[in-house]
Amino acid sequence: MLKINDLHASVEEKEILKGINLEVNAGEVHAIMGPNGSGKSTLAAVIAGKEEFEVTKGNVVLDGEDLEDDAPEDRAHKGVFLSFQYPVEIPGVSVTNFMKTAINESRKAKGLEDMPANQMLKLIREKAELLEIDRKFLSRSLNEGFSGGEKKRNEIFQMAMLEPKLAILDETDSGLDIDALRIVANGVNKLKSKDNAVIVITHYQRLLEYIVPDFVHVLHNGKIVKSGGKELALELEAKGYDWIKQEATV
């Protein structure tokens, strides 16, 4: 489904990704781990098409199509979803209104009519239940005054609404207490299917107890320096990142 080939990307002339290779197939969960500043969030942003990053070499291919010329919204329409590490606030725009706009824009791109209001309401209700979200929450302004946990839960709620092909969860576990973590992970697990894929970017192994990865990759200094199964995450938890760094520099 997703194929990343020798991807190099820079911001303001500074190279952050230095040749990433990654293949993700439908039905798989990949975890990307690594120390601070290793380029995890940059990788997520580049896949999503954030313009401040310049791809200098290599490419990102989704379902055989090079995404190079696609704007972020085109990528979203093709099924790429990014759960943000720091979701932004949009005052005055309710969660419901935002979702309605997002869904209808995607439908428009596919040549479909707006989703009928009753269907939209039903979908919202269903997905809100899945993530144990209070109805009152949905009429609040997007992320404004949300707690860290609420913001993350809202990201996964949006993911549930948009049903992406490829979901990238960027540090979704940060700021979550154990109960919220369980709800969020449970939501992600229920949304998983043989047709979609999830990339979980995380610092810690904690989230991976709930969302069990098929593959774990370690990113260091803009490159994937080690890949393995879920046991690699445990090893990292026990030993920290230093041994990886050393191994990589050798």
């Binding site: 313009e51 401040e52 704007a71 972020p72 919204e73 990528r75 329409h77 979803f81 948009l162």
Partner: peptide
Amino acid sequence: EDQIFYCNQRGID
């Protein structure tokens, strides 16, 4: 730009 990108990422131009 972060607000715009956030919307873009959700499919909103």
